[in-house]
């Protein structure tokens, strides 16, 4: 309970600070930029808020965009985590037992290519090259692209987590007659997961923000939604700041969730 109080206090403070910052800047900037008089400020800012977010239901671009951004992020994370763990286990199985040499080469190749090229190029290639002749939902393309991209990073994180576990844990499992899969599932991965949770949280946050390039395949995500408002109202400041704020709030919520999970897992030890 106490931790929740602490967190909500932090959250409110952050929100208040950003709110204060935004209103101050937006209140002052037209004054500076347009050379308006001080008396015009109040109605001016209200008019601009109305134009950017209320008129023609423009807020919907942000809300619907946010929905798409979140959907891409969550599904891509699931795909990335599943494939990432698989890749890591293949590589560790190879390192420890010399088994699965072919799969190991494939895994290494995959990680090299994905990490060696920009995610935006991967997104464009998947949309314009691989699915060029197929009529495919852009959401699906984005989910595949970001999921596959995330998998490479997750796999290296998971692998480092597995390697951080003392080899004695493996040996004890072996000496009891347990095989590699059983040792992994019951002993190594639960411990590794706890160690890499902060890094996985980091990857999730990076993933969320990376999805902001989805607009390049014409997908109306949160970023593109804000950008669209900008293009019809000819005002950059309010829509872009609004988009930034929404990302910030989501990231704050995500990191709070991750640290809560961290604490819960830690409790199991003592």
């Amino acid at each position: 309970m106490k931790k929740w109080k602490k967190f909500s206090l932090f959250f409110i403070l952050t929100a208040a600070l950003t709110g204060l910052f935004t209103t101050t800047v937006s209140a002052v900037s037209p004054f500076i930029l347009l050379g308006g008089k001080e008396g015009d400020l109040q109605p001016e800012i209200l008019q601009r808020l109305y134009d950017n977010f209320v008129k023609d239901d423009r807020w919907k671009y942000l809300v619907e965009g946010l929905g798409r951004t979140l959907l891409i992020t969550v599904v891509a994370m699931i795909i990335g985590t599943l494939i990432g763990f698989l890749l890591a286990i293949i590589r560790v199985a190879h390192d420890k037992n010399g088994s699965v040499p072919v799969l190991n080469v494939i895994a290494r190749l995959y990680i090299t290519i994905i990490r060696g090229t920009p995610v935006m190029i991967q997104l464009l290639i998947i949309y314009f090259v691989i699915f060029a002749s197929v009529d495919i939902d852009k959401m699906l393309v984005a989910i595949i692209a970001f999921g596959l991209n995330s998998a490479a990073y997750v796999s290296e994180t998971v692998r480092s987590g597995i390697m951080s576990i003392d080899n004695g844990q493996f040996e004890a499992a072996k000496s009891l007659g347990l095989g590699f899969p059983a040792a992994m599932i019951h002993i190594i991965l639960p411990q590794a997961f706890k160690n890499i949770l902060p890094a996985l949280g980091n990857e999730l946050i990076a993933l969320l923000k990376e999805t902001s390039i989805s607009g390049y395949i014409g997908l109306m995500d949160l970023t593109r939604g804000g950008d669209y408002i900008r293009s019809v109202t000819y005002e950059a400041f309010l829509p872009l700041i609004a988009v930034a704020l929404i990302y910030l709030v989501i990231v704050i919520l995500l990191s709070a969730g991750v640290s809560k999970l961290e604490k819960r897992l830690k409790k199991n030890e003592r």
Partner: peptide, 21 residues
């Protein structure tokens, strides 16, 4: 070898208890 190891107990210098259980 796994079946053989079931019949050969081993105790290590560093104990190697499974820390997560």
């Amino acid at each position: 070898i796994r079946q053989i190891r079931e019949k050969i107990g081993m105790v290590f210098q560093q104990f190697n208890l499974f820390d997560n259980m």
